[in-house]
């Protein structure tokens, strides 16, 4: 369906692309990639990545509960993969993140990072809801998950190279990043389909859905999660 800015899917994808561009051109990302950041910045980045994704299985489980029939299979497969229970027999993704920290010499920080991830999850639950329905909350959550898949499919390889080169991390430590650079190309495409399916199943008007997408992305969600003290300069996620 055309909403005057292109199809809903293409409009959302454009929002994601702008977010990725904003993220990869941020001073923080450039410092990471060029090696101009100090070792403390790399350590903080690694902790922030782990904090952002350690509880992804819980979020995926929530989304699976809300999934429209046509998207339920994708979300279930994502959830099982995240838990290391899919057919590929891969390791649970949270374990890859734990490995990342341990191999980076940050094992002593693991308990704190886990606690912070728990706290982030708790806050999501206890904060007053901005939206009036679970339908809207679910769209916001799905948007964020798919946005990360979209970004990781395009950027995680670059991040892995930067961490190997400037932080000296060996390939096994970087498996979480390399895994996402491979599988999230497929996930991101599926995710965009699932987002559209969700919007249609729950009968959002396009403008209504796009407004929630914009609200979810408005703070440059990647920079906010990975560089915790990122200072916003403008809103990068909106329709243009």
């Amino acid at each position: 369906m055309d909403n005057g800015h292109g199809t809903l899917r293409s409009t959302i994808e454009s929002c994601f692309a702008r977010q990725v561009a904003s993220f990869t051109t941020s001073a923080e990302f450039l410092a990471l990639e060029t090696g101009s950041g100090g070792s403390g910045q790399y350590d903080a980045f690694l902790e922030n990545v782990a904090r952002a994704h350690l509880r992804s299985p819980q979020l995926l489980a929530f989304l699976y509960a809300l999934a429209p029939p046509s998207a339920a299979q994708d979300l279930r497969e994502n959830l099982l993969e995240e838990l290391g229970l899919d057919e590929s027999g891969g390791r649970p993704h949270p374990d890859l993140l734990r490995d990342l920290l341990v191999r980076a010499g940050l094992g002593g920080r693991l308990a704190t990072v886990e606690a912070r991830a728990d706290e982030d999850l708790r806050r999501i639950v206890v904060e007053p809801l901005l939206y009036g329905t679970l339908r809207d909350v679910g769209l916001a959550a799905l948007t964020e998950i798919v946005a990360f898949e979209y970004m990781l499919s395009r950027v995680s390889g670059r991040i892995a190279r930067a961490l190997a080169e400037h932080r000296g991390l060996p390939a096994p430590a970087l498996e979480w990043f390399t895994h996402h650079s491979e599988v999230d190309i497929r996930h991101a495409e599926q995710g965009l389909d699932d987002l559209e399916a969700y919007v249609r199943y729950y009968e959002f008007a396009d403008d209504e859905a796009l407004t929630i997408v914009e609200m979810t992305l408005r703070e440059n969600v990647f920079a906010r999660r990975y560089f915790r003290d990122f200072v916003a300069t403008n809103a990068a996620g909106g329709r243009r």
Partner: peptide
């Protein structure tokens, strides 16, 4: 980016607190 309290004082849907 983050607030100082454990319990949120933020308003919710319809601006209600």
């Amino acid at each position: 980016a983050e607030d100082v309290s454990i319990e949120s004082v933020r308003f919710g849907h319809r601006g209600r607190g």
